[in-house]
Design a protein around this nucleic acid. Structure first.
Lengths: 205, 205
DNA sequence: TGTATAAATGAACAGCGTTCAGTAACTTTG
DNA sequence: CAAAGTTACTGAACGCTGTTCATTTATACA
């Protein structure tokens, strides 16, 4: 009979409903203010119900963090059509920063907050992060094969590039650019990314 | 009479005592677990007393953040004796990372946590951070004057370098290097710093 | 329709930052 | 020296938080 199937479906649907409510509340008010009670209220369930679908708040944030990675990967996808490998890496940097500034709460989930990484569900090698990192490593390797990029270890180059764009994003999101005038910050960030690219690239340009 | 002076002195001393207790608790258990009640218990005062000396928890964390900057500046001071400007910048990077890994809680206060920057006491241009940034800018300018460094805007170069070392520190402290084997992380970080230096430097080496 | 099972509730718990009426200690005055 | 005035400190209380679990409600099966 189809009752078991329907129940299973409803379970999945409510779980999904909770996650959507959580994502809404989270992006609206941020981590500290996104309480279980607010999420429950938003979807018109009691707080206790949420704990029938998730072991704790960290598990919810881990799921949201996975979805955030989906969004970032979606933003990266169009860059695969860029032929010039150096230009592709440059665009990846700018896309990354734009994502961080446009969707600060999602960026926090992915790369700053501790909570999502404390969830039991996070696997040993952090699959979501690993995937994105390998994507960058591949781009670096292509630029190296075209003899357009520093010939140092591609992993180290990729790490350097990732850490600098993350550093820009994290310092900005956590209010550490107060020594710059607000209006010049975007140009400084963009200039910094381009400086990094210029520094790692060789040959034409 | 000296009574007023003694009282004033005692006030300053208790304030200092609170800050020391707060620093101890904070470095031992971290931000989330460092509660006002624990700090009060440590110094054998009631929680309410702390609020006679600080407007809120943020104000305490802001003071601790200032002291943390003092420590970092102390670690930077010996580097002034290094004559080679490029080597000096390189050592600054390694010193910065060593500080972040050796004193993670202090680093969190200075560059990651939001709380210290929400205090009323933080001035518009974040004097502590600004001072350290200018220190780096000066080093970059000297390397440029010796014609040993990229001739791009020194502020942009300094920002690039700072953001990449901060990125390395922040990603590591917030558990975002899970895709690497724990034992290879220190070498990756060191390699990344050296790659950055190599990339910005020109001429001899 | 009655019983077994599953799902949802919401009060309760311990802990958080913060406040403030009340108490204790100390200083000044008569 | 005692009384009055001032300052310092306390700790219970408030409204939050994440989380648990006995109880209630809704559904499924006999």
């Amino acid at each position: 009979m189809g009752i078991a199937e329907r129940k299973e479906r409803e379970k999945v649907e409510l779980r999904e409903h909770i996650l959507q409510g959580a994502m809404d509340v989270f992006t609206e008010v941020g981590y500290e203010q996104a309480t279980i009670r607010k999420i429950a209220q938003r979807i018109e369930y009691s707080p206790g119900t949420i704990y029938l679908y998730f072991t704790d708040k960290d598990a919810i944030l881990f799921e949201l963090h996975k979805r955030a990675f989906g969004e970032l990967e979606g933003a990266f996808a169009p860059l695969l059509t860029i032929d010039d490998p150096v230009e592709r890496i440059r665009q990846m940097g700018h896309t990354y920063i734009r994502f961080a500034l446009d969707k600060p709460m999602l960026y926090e989930l992915m790369f700053i907050l501790q909570a999502p990484m404390k969830a039991e569900e996070v696997c040993d090698d952090w699959e979501e992060g690993h995937r994105s990192f390998l994507f960058l490593v591949e781009a670096v390797k292509q630029a190296q094969q075209a003899n357009r990029f520093s010939q140092a270890s591609p992993e180290v180059i990729a790490l350097s590039f990732w850490s600098s764009v993350h550093g820009l994003a994290a310092l900005y999101l956590r209010d550490r650019f107060k020594m710059f005038a607000e209006e010049e910050v975007p140009q400084l960030i963009a200039g910094s990314i381009d400086a990094m690219i210029h520094c790692f690239s060789r040959g034409a340009d």
